[in-house]
Each structure stands twice: as structure tokens, then as C-alpha cells.
Design a protein around this nucleic acid. Sequence first.
DNA 1: AGCGCACTGCGTACGCTGTACGTAACTAGG
DNA 2: CCTAGTTACGTACAGCGTACGCAGTGCGCT
Lengths: 237, 237
Amino acid sequence: MTGRSAVPEVIWARPERAGRGPRAAHSRADIAAAAVRIADADGLDAVSMRHVATELGCGTMSLYNYVPRKEDLYELMVDAISGEHDSWEPTGDWRADMLRVAHQTRALMHRHPWLPRLMSPVYGFSPNALRYLEHCLVCLDPLDASYGTKMELIAMLNGVVTTYVGNELATAERTRSLPWSAEQEQAMRIAYLGSRIATGAYPRMAAAFTQDAGPIDLEAVFERALGRVLDAFEPKG
Amino acid sequence: MTGRSAVPEVIWARPERAGRGPRAAHSRADIAAAAVRIADADGLDAVSMRHVATELGCGTMSLYNYVPRKEDLYELMVDAISGEHDSWEPTGDWRADMLRVAHQTRALMHRHPWLPRLMSPVYGFSPNALRYLEHCLVCLDPLDASYGTKMELIAMLNGVVTTYVGNELATAERTRSLPWSAEQEQAMRIAYLGSRIATGAYPRMAAAFTQDAGPIDLEAVFERALGRVLDAFEPKG
DNA sequence: AGCGCACTGCGTACGCTGTACGTAACTAGG
DNA sequence: CCTAGTTACGTACAGCGTACGCAGTGCGCT
């Protein structure tokens, strides 16, 4: 009576290799790597079942033996990338350690600019994500807080990093699919913004944009945001 | 020598109606409303140029007279929705007022569950977004901080709201395109998580999940997150 | 007044997508 | 050994964004 009867699948629960039948020609890791290679080179939109299959050197529909739906391919990609997070020894200063984690995530996203678009809580418990989470919790051992609070810290920090780096990269990634450069479009938008502000209808916006004229230092904004998030979890004393 | 020569367009800079030619049969607002209606009813993926055109009662390609690219349609949608933000009189308590703004945004996203997916800094300066930003700045008048800092507050609050409500809605929105229910999938994922944790490889994760067993109160998590963001901008003293 | 052109409306068509389905080859379990 | 289940893959379909071309319309200019 649920209306939907099919059995849900989680790619990680499905065994990599079945007993019967011919030897599988590709591993999950190979497939993820191929997809990541395409996304890095030509953008996320270039990742189609056909392209990945071609990159792997097999027929399009063969891919569906390994990856039941395209969403699962995305999940494989995110997990593969998450594996690039390395787990170093915590220093005992949770604040410094979490800052390091955040910067590592940012570096990861710069290496793979499509990652923010795929970041979803749904993929949050893939094998490599679990390793990553455990590492974060180890870093947070010195923090006097419940595990619940620590998880909220990790989620919020990840959220802020994803949002900020996503913004940082959005313009660049956009350029790929547009017939003009990102700078040109931004100039157009700034021009429009200027014309709207010049009407005097938005006095505070006008003040905001004349006060700090010139390009804002995104790097510094990111740094401040991180600091504020961590501040918010500092035990009050 | 830029490699990309076409002239960039911003939909808002383009006049709604040209001088020459027959009277335009549809307004930008009509088009946005039609697209929003479809997205609300059948999900964002149902918003195609063909569907919107049909909903409007015109040929598919006629739509391109109003909306040069599908991205611009998205931009129209986000702006139309942003118009639902109403600008009430600030109370003088910036913290309370910003909380109210955040809750209003959450309500908006619950009404239009596809909004988080379209939230992009690129669309940040549409007409209604400008009104919204100005209203936020008015609410922040009592806060002793530079406009730069205030903009960072607004950006961070919006980011956190988008992330949290996005997570909140992701599962529900996912169900639409899946042949099984979101609950079923979540159960599968929890089961997988349990099996991984049972290996003992992630002791802190295990502790985290046994400590606060039972479904977490997303509402309370959201509230705490908002509080923490606002705390972070409280002038220290 | 009337010419011309910019605009609206729209049908057709192309290349691309995810993926359902059917078929042939293959191999491990009974 | 047999057979059931798996791999491999070609074909096919519905849907997508949108380039292009044509007809009709009415404003702006001469």
C-alpha cells in the first residue's frame, strides 16, 4: 500500500562481484576514476553514461551492470574523491586541526571543481566519508562536547566550506557552458547592479558598495567565515 | 583574443518589451509564474522549455523570444519567489529580526522545495533579491559593524539556511524521481551504516550513533545553527 | 503615407541524454 | 554436465535544449 514497491538499493551494499557468470572486467574504483577524469577535464556535465563507458572502453549499457543508475555513479565519484582526504595525526588543538581539515576540503574542491555541486547529505555515509568523519571526530577529542554537538560542528563546517568554495568556483565552472567569459558576464551584472543602485531605491546597498569598492578578497572572507563557525562551538567560559 | 566573443546578456538588463513588432503575448512575470507552478506541482526536473511553453499556451520556440536560455528561466523563477519575502518594519532587535528573516526563508523553501537547488550567488542581484538584501540591511541597522561585515552575516545566514533546509528537503525531493520511497532508501542506508560501524573500525562514529539513538530533531538542529551563526557576529564585549 | 525592419510566433530538425529491453556468450553451483 | 544467473552490448525510445528558417505584424523613419 506504499504506492512504491521496488526494492531500494544502496550501491555500497551491493557486492562488487557476483558468484555466477563471467569475470567482471572493471572494478568500481576504475569506473569512479574514469568518471572523475572526465569531470576534471571537461566538467561535470560531460559525465554521461556514454562518455564514461567509452573512457572505460566498454559498451554504454555494460556500465549498467556495475552502476544501476546515474546517481550511483555520482555517489561513486564523491566517495573516490573523499578518499583523497588523508588522516594525519591530530595535534591536540581541535581548532587548528579542524581549520586544517577545512583547508584540505577546499583544496580538494579546487582540484575537483564539480564536487560542490554533488555534495549531498544523502551520500554522507560512503566508505571514505566514514573514514573522513571518524578522523574529524578524532580531531575533536579534545573538545568538551557531546558527539551530537561534534557532528553538528562537522556538518556546519562542511556546509560553510561547500557554500563558500562553491560560490568561489561557480563563476569559473559556469564559463564552460557559456559562449562568453565569466568576467564579461560579471561585468554586465555589476553594471546592472550599479544602474539599479543609482536609482536611490536601495540606500544601504549603495552605501555597502561604495564603502568597500574594489574586488573583495574572497580568501579573507572564507578565512573569517571558518573562524566564526569554530568560535560558535567554543565552550563558553 | 579572449577566445569567446559573444556578448553576455543579463535577463534583467534586457527590456521587457521591444519597440518594433507585434505586442508581446506574455509577460516575464507570467512566464516565471508558469514555471513556478510546474516546479511546485511536479518538481524542478519537470520544468522544461516545452512544458513551460505548453503551460503558457504557446509554441516551444516562442518562449525563446522571452528567455534566451534555460538558465535565465531559472533566474526568473528564483526572482519571482524572492518576491514572496515581505518587508516588515524592523523591531530594533537585529538578532530577533534576522531570526525572523531566516524562518521566513525556510518557510519559502518549504513552499517551493526546488529553491535550494537553484540558489546560486550568480542570481544574487535580481530585482527582488535587491529588495530583500536592502530589507536585511535595514534590520541590521542597530548592529555596530561595517557594511562589509553585515553582508557577510547575510551571506552566511543564507548559506546555512539553504544548506540545512536543502538537506531537510533533499530526501523528500529525491523520492519524486525514484521508484521507491525515501523512507525505504533511508532505512537501507542506516542498515549499511550499522553494518560498517559494527566492524569496530569507527569507534567514535559508533559512539555517536549509539549515544543519541533515535531520530534527531532536525528542527532543533536548525534552530541551534541559526543561533550559532548570529552569535558569531555579536560584537564582543 | 508607406516602406522597411525588428520583432513575435512557431514548426522542424539535430545532437545529446538516461535507460528499458532483448540477445548472445560465459561460468559457477547443484 | 546442466542450467541459472551474470556479463556484455546493440538497438530503440522518449525526452531534452536549442539552432534555424519562415510567415506575419506593427513601430519608426523618411
